[in-house]
Design a protein around this nucleic acid. Sequence first.
DNA 1: ATAATAAGTGAGTAATCACTCACTTTACAG
DNA 2: CTGTAAAGTGAGTGATTACTCACTTATTAT
Lengths: 228, 228
Amino acid sequence: MTLLMEKNILDQLLKETRQTKKQTDKLTQIDNAAIELFSEKGFSNTSTKEIALKAQVAEGTIFKHYGTKENLLLNILLKFIKVLIPAIKKDMIHKLEKQNFITVETFIHYFIKDRINFIQDNTEIFKVFIKEIVYNDSLRKNLISLHFEDVKSMFFRYFDIFKEKGELAEIDNEIIIKLLLKIVLSEAIWVFALSDNYKSIDIEKWTMELTYEFLNGAGTKKVGGEQL
Amino acid sequence: MTLLMEKNILDQLLKETRQTKKQTDKLTQIDNAAIELFSEKGFSNTSTKEIALKAQVAEGTIFKHYGTKENLLLNILLKFIKVLIPAIKKDMIHKLEKQNFITVETFIHYFIKDRINFIQDNTEIFKVFIKEIVYNDSLRKNLISLHFEDVKSMFFRYFDIFKEKGELAEIDNEIIIKLLLKIVLSEAIWVFALSDNYKSIDIEKWTMELTYEFLNGAGTKKVGGEQL
DNA sequence: ATAATAAGTGAGTAATCACTCACTTTACAG
DNA sequence: CTGTAAAGTGAGTGATTACTCACTTATTAT
């Protein structure tokens, strides 16, 4: 129940899932049922019996495939990360190479909108991700900053460019990316993982608001980034 | 296991705890043990047997006092809220009446520093609060925005003043307070509830950074709040 | 068509869970 | 000192848990 996964095991699992392991009908049924139940009641409050019932599958089938309940959760979360990370990287490279004339505003606007759309398309699994990453300390330690490092360095390349162009304040890149994550992620978490009304949302307007917040804050007077 | 508390029950509990109900030694032992275990492993992954063991108390004693395990959690969280909310209110009134000449920067700086100190003094219970508020949907619905409404309106009074003085952008108050919460809370959650290294922190420096972020964002050029 | 492997089943199991209750100990008012 | 109520105890309980295993069914290679 406590900690059971280590970095190598995690990486191994990632590689395993990477190859197009044939996804049986029953397997996807299990996955979907688990995601739905985990997102509603959380991993700890969901029994394998419930999952089997909802998936219209024998309880044994779950264990035939995943061995343990914890492993089922891991597989679900890894599938999420496995899709998310490359998507971000690809977008970044694409933007970086094709549009050197891009402004901070366009860049941030694009990034925010893109990620919000992704989360909206994967609301349930995002919910599971957030809940369990907060709840399970060892899970968080193993998942966070495992595959995000190179994404971070890509952001830093952008930030440096924008700083040269005088569009970004001369603040430590670590602080800048943290600010971006704080503004976008916490909003996304609140709306998609903790509220119920994520249907009626004007994403374009929302993106503009968040972009503005990130670049300007709530104050009025501003000369440069000389304060820090 | 699912939902068991309603608004009235919650309010009732709050009133009960409000009066100085004599806190037996055993009771505080139970509370402390529960807070420690809940913050480590989460409510769902902690058994009453473990709590009793750590508190050096018979398991029956827990149920004599709290009736159910869920009620124990509620009492712990309510004690936290019960202290937090009045503290904020008092500070706000105090500042508002004594220093009308205050600037946004001073105000925000003061607020952030004050809340960070409070959270630092109550790290473990804050951790429980965050974990369970994210994990348990019905708990969140009942606790959030139950007693925060008047605090919010107090903030709005300040915001209006600062807008008049031209120190705050002409943005919707809802957006401003959300930005403040996003920047401060998500940072606090990350550092105090999800990381382990909250000991070696220069609070003054940290407060200044967060204040700057809130007021200026990460961009450079800025004329007014005309964008929104 | 057949053998071999994989997928799927569900009754069964030991462990653990939150909670109860008959009982003992403590606190304290008169 | 005595009687009464509250605080505290811990063995016991039925329900639920994740997981197993002997078995059947489906798939695939030859």
